[in-house]
Design a protein around this nucleic acid. Structure first.
Lengths: 107, 107
DNA sequence: AATCAGTACTTGACAATGCCAGGTAGTTGG
DNA sequence: CCAACTACCTGGCATTGTCAAGTACTGATT
């Protein structure tokens, strides 16, 4: 799958996921994998970035299945960012799909 | 508009445009601008890259309105690439939009 | 108890691609 | 002759995803 398509969209997928419920990194890797292949090495730096931007607050919870899990919770800023990016994505993908339809003439 | 969304999609938009008819760089800037803001400094290197990859053949045509125009014509390889990327985009954007719908529960 | 698989997080070096800013040149009209 | 528009090109930069490797904890297997 085209790597480049993911740029920017991953941020949206992560924000949408955490909006539903608090999640930890490893869990997010699996959630986002439903949509597109994703690497741990992509998710963790992204989470750190969004945390630095005050979109997330974090807390640790011990686990019986391994090391403690770092959970991410959406802040007000995160919610607002989620809304913005979502509407940008919706608008963008709509325009692209319209452009594609306009190219249907011969194929 | 989110810069990152464009990554990879621009290639598709350019391939689709040239598939309709041969076009020159400056013209493509305006065509693609219908969908999203785009810079000359983005288009020209992209055209060079696709030409190196044998997706385009080029030819010069003199113009009364300025310097000669370099037209791009899709090769068989370009047509095949167009098809591939188009189906990847369609598949990807569909999955993302389904994921978004699945997050509609509270917002 | 030692090893292995699975869970969980981290990081540094790298690749891809878009943007900015600036340059070169031809044409037309004031 | 100079400004404005058309047209193309380029080098350096920023952003963000990938790869690869490492750390560490738990529970099951040998």
């Amino acid at each position: 799958m085209n790597t480049q398509f993911k740029k920017g969209v991953l941020e949206l997928l992560v924000l949408l996921s955490v909006a539903k419920k608090d999640m930890y990194g490893y869990e997010l890797v699996q959630e986002v994998s439903k949509v597109t292949d994703i690497n741990e090495g992509t998710i963790y730096p992204l989470l750190r970035r969004l945390t630095n931007e005050k979109c997330f607050e974090t807390y640790l919870v011990e686990s019986k299945e391994g090391p403690p899990r770092k959970y991410y919770r959406l802040t007000a800023l995160g919610i607002s960012k989620k809304g913005k990016i979502l509407s940008q994505w919706t608008n963008f993908s709509k325009k692209v799909n319209n452009f594609i339809k306009g190219s249907d003439i011969n194929e």
